[in-house]
Structure formats: structure tokens, C-alpha cells
Amino acid sequence: MELKAIHTDDSYTHLALVGKLDIPGVGEIENKFIGYTAARKKGAVIDLSGVTFMGSMGLRLFLSAAKALHRENKVVVLLNPQPLVREVLDASGIGDVVAIESDETAAVAKAKA
């Protein structure tokens, strides 16, 4: 599992995840992910287009970050999940509380707001 920092400045954070968000995968990037999201306290776009598998551990990661940023009046935006990953997001109901976007410009605008 790989976490890439695409953009980090005072207005927002843009990350890309690549690989499998299963238990080992989440373990590999969790601390770094928290550092770039909850600890930075900026709105965050998480590009999921490179994620090929995600279970409930991945959902936990995103919900935890979203809850932490909510306390700072900031949001997490999930960008471009693959169809099978999108199914898991939809089945979990996370989309009620975390934005899921297919357009990068719209995602960045939400994260910067």
C-alpha cells in the first residue's frame, strides 16, 4: 500500500492511495495518513482511483479522519473510487457523512471551503 502526497499547503491536502486497503495495507499507511489529515487540520482530498480493494478497516480510516477534521470545520472528500470500492462505500452508508466525488475540481473546492 502506498500513500502519495500530491499537494499540501495552507488551503488543503491532496493525497492519493494506491494498492489494497486491507488489514496489512491500512497498517502500512495509517500513521502517515493520520499525519496528513487529522494532524494537519486542513480539508483533505483522498484520491482512491488506485485502490483495488477496501474493507471495513479502510472505512474506519476515512471516518476517523472525517470526524477529526469535522471538529476543525474541515472535510474529507473521497475522489474517484473504482466501481467495486464504490460499492463498499455505498453499502456502508459513509456517503451520508463523507463526500464522494468523481470530479477533481469539485473535490478540491469542497476541501478548500
Binding site: 474493507g55 471495513s56 472505512l59 474506519r60 472525517a66 470526524k67 460499492e87 453499502a91 452508508g93 463523507v98
Partner: peptide, 22 residues
Amino acid sequence: NKNAALPERKVGGLGIHIIKEL
């Protein structure tokens, strides 16, 4: 709390829920 707002939303217990759904 599956329909709760974000601050009250539980981060655990989602695994069995998504399996029942899918």
C-alpha cells in the same frame, strides 16, 4: 448510529453491516 450525523457516527462495526448488504 448508522444514520447518525458525523460526530456521533461509530467507526467500528461496519464489517458485518457491509457483508449483510453485499
